[in-house]
Design a protein around this nucleic acid. Structure first.
Lengths: 165, 165
DNA sequence: GCTGGCCTACTCGGATACTTTCTGTCCGAGTACTGACGG
DNA sequence: CCGTCAGTACTCGGACAGAAAGTATCCGAGTAGGCCAGC
């Protein structure tokens, strides 16, 4: 039961996108270089984030990715769902009920499954309290401002300008 | 991020062992038949439970497995650790810190990892509150007594008698 | 007839394949810029 | 000289392999009981 490594990459990516100026986009290759991860796998992750509605994608030469929502509206659990997919971590195989429940109670909620759901709910609630905005605030408090400034500088150097109309 | 199917099997097995009379053992094949799961894989699980100190094993012809602790002293988290192994579900790859932290702060606790640890702690606490004893009590309340009686009857028919001295 | 040793049958324990999921890679669809051509 | 159109270069999108973990299986180590021979 190990979380995908893609989760960390997705969070980092979304934080980068959150620091992006309005109407600007960032291309996948730039992100993968900054994160020092496989470009192909990150593109796959980006596709998941797009399908989940967390980021917008613009195809074409001047294309790229941008955050689809406001940073305070994107929770860690949203990212988790996008990366890991729906369907909780514990999936009932029916062994418990087939052993301990009678035939007519087989469809009843499994006692063990109920506990697992409670545990997962507690876990989810923590992740739902954390948003991209709160993470950014923690980063500001924890790490040095120089690093953030350097990151913003890199962003402006890498971003695609807004589409002139 | 899916929990192993072995978790459900292990819990069922331990509950069966908890209903076992004192100094009696149950052999792996009997359990696998009752649970309708692969005998080989269940034996592997039993080995894990033995190594974790949750069950005692007696080799030999009259051998089998028995609960090593009192049912109220075995939590769901103990079982989880035995089956899934130590090392939390989120493992830091260092991407986050390498992106957002300076060189001298790389060893600092990762902000994202900290949130994940909090979430996992909340999850663990729920699992630690549940023991084999409490699960048995819930089973008694939820499912029909006939089924429990039938289970005990099956247990007595399958158990190995205590070692005569 | 009794006791000791050996042999067999049965159990757990660990090493060995197969399947699914996760990770990483490649090629195709679509768009904006560039340049040339025609009016 | 200006507008239009085709070509090209670059992006995201989805289909395709390799690696790792989970699942299932088989064979070996060890023990208890039964059988036989010897005393």
């Amino acid at each position: 039961m190990r979380m995908k490594s893609g989760m960390e990459q997705a969070v980092c990516t979304l934080i980068l996108l959150a620091r992006l100026p309005e109407r600007a986009t960032l291309k996948a290759v730039a992100i993968s270089e900054r994160l020092e991860v496989s470009p192909s796998y990150l593109k796959k992750l980006m596709r998941m984030l797009v399908q989940a509605g967390l980021v917008d994608s613009i195809p074409g030469t001047k294309g790229g990715f941008s955050l689809a929502k406001k940073p305070e509206d994107v929770t860690l659990y949203d990212i988790f769902l996008a990366v890991e997919g729906r369907g909780g971590m514990y999936r009932d195989r029916g062994v418990f009920t087939s052993v301990f429940a009678c035939e007519d109670q087989r469809s009843t909620t499994c006692v063990l499954g109920h506990v697992m759901q409670r545990a997962e709910k507690a876990w989810v609630e923590v992740l739902e309290q954390e948003t991209l905005a709160s993470l950014l605030q923690q980063i500001r408090k924890t790490y040095s401002p120089e690093r953030l400034a350097e990151m913003d500088a890199w962003l402006t150097s890498q971003l695609r300008e807004e589409v002139n109309e």
